[in-house]
Design a protein around this nucleic acid. Structure first.
Lengths: 211, 211
DNA sequence: TAGATTGTTAATCGATTAACAATC
DNA sequence: TAGATTGTTAATCGATTAACAATC
């Protein structure tokens, strides 16, 4: 596929995995790698790796392979880790709290600016040096900080209204942990769904498959 | 595809979503639904729905459609929600703690039997009425409770050893939140990966795609 | 230069969509 | 019965793999 054409999601979803493997190689002091060796380490075909990378450009050198450090940087760039998108997290319950604490947003292209919740037990407390604010202050913060992305960790019922409000405030993308169907109800909005329940049931299927 | 043949993961991964939509329909008192109407609600083709379902059997009635309640039960059965697999959670840090608290395991085919961690701050405390035990007791519990699945929420470095130990103790499947590559290092073991970092970077890609 | 490995085109495979006969 | 909608086969589309010429 020539550079510049539409990139399929199948390809994009493999990029973070390449990125992880290249990071490890880099950490282990490995300077160059061929598509063949990378394919063996990752459990896929060399052909696929070359196809994937050539969607974005010719990063390799014929007869030599790819320079690990350079390819790592290129993929990071493609994924957009070097441009921080201002983001907020809405819903600091079990999940939201853990996500806020656990994820390294800055290394992955997002900057977590504010956290919102309405539960008085956590309101005003700090999570990772970010104060938990009441939801009513969302409009003010979104406007002032030019928020473009939201990590959504609220129950399904509450999601519809908040999503609409956020889109009107300029939010273009959601990391969606709720079970609300954003992409269906708001076509055009960028959504990355994390359906943990679905994932768990898929494991359940696999466990029961050959019984 | 005839019943009994191999089912592709593309199909399996759609099942939990069908299950969710059918649950909602059921809750809203809708008794019957055609593939066409379901396809419109879900944003896919009627053909695909019929193909997917017919991998497992003819659940519909020609000229009528599908009975919501019955189809819901069938898909639940296929996913294995009615057989609880005994499972443990290893690593009750940020993520592990939230997962243990947040997920409804019993509705999704797993029974969370024990939680393990080595951090003295949480050892002995209860999460959802389950006491957090030290990792050294893993062998004993796995053997006694016939543990078959593990929710893995530990750092990459610690994963290798624990996974090997658990496999030797009879664990067949992992819900893997760590960045350790189980399926590669232990072929044949059932793994469902939740790579939140990868997911977040995919959102980052989408946010930067058209810029 | 010769050997190695990429970038890229062609072939294959699998998944989705369309079409329609079967049947409730 | 006529109308509707499934189950299933055939056609299309897209993604993966194989092959090889280009080139470092």
């Amino acid at each position: 596929m020539a550079k510049g054409e539409h990139i399929s999601m199948s390809v994009v979803r493999r990029l973070p995995r390449y990125y992880r493997f290249l990071y490890d190689l880099k950490e282990n002091g490995i300077v160059r790698i061929s598509s063949r060796e990378l394919s063996q380490r990752m459990g896929l075909t060399a052909s696929q790796i070359r196809q994937d990378l050539n969607c974005f450009g010719g990063f390799g050198q014929q007869g030599y392979g790819y320079i690990v450090e350079q390819l790592y940087a290129e993929i990071g760039h493609i994924l957009g880790v070097d441009v921080l998108t201002p983001a907020i997290l809405v819903g600091a319950g079990n999940m939201g709290h853990a996500i806020a604490n656990h994820m390294d947003f800055e290394q992955r292209g997002l900057q977590l600016v504010s956290i919102f919740d309405n539960n008085p037990d956590i309101l005003g407390k700090n999570i990772r040096d970010i104060e938990v604010l009441p939801i009513e202050r969302i409009d003010e913060i979104c406007a002032n900080q030019k928020i473009q992305a939201t990590i959504l960790c609220i129950p399904k019922e509450a999601a519809s209204k908040i999503v609409e409000r956020l889109i009107n405030l300029g939010v273009r993308g959601f990391w969606n942990f709720s079970h609300y169907d954003i992409s269906y109800n708001h076509p055009g909005v960028l959504v990355e769904n994390v359906h943990l329940g679905d994932s768990l049931m898929t494991l359940s299927y696999k466990l029961n498959e050959n019984r």
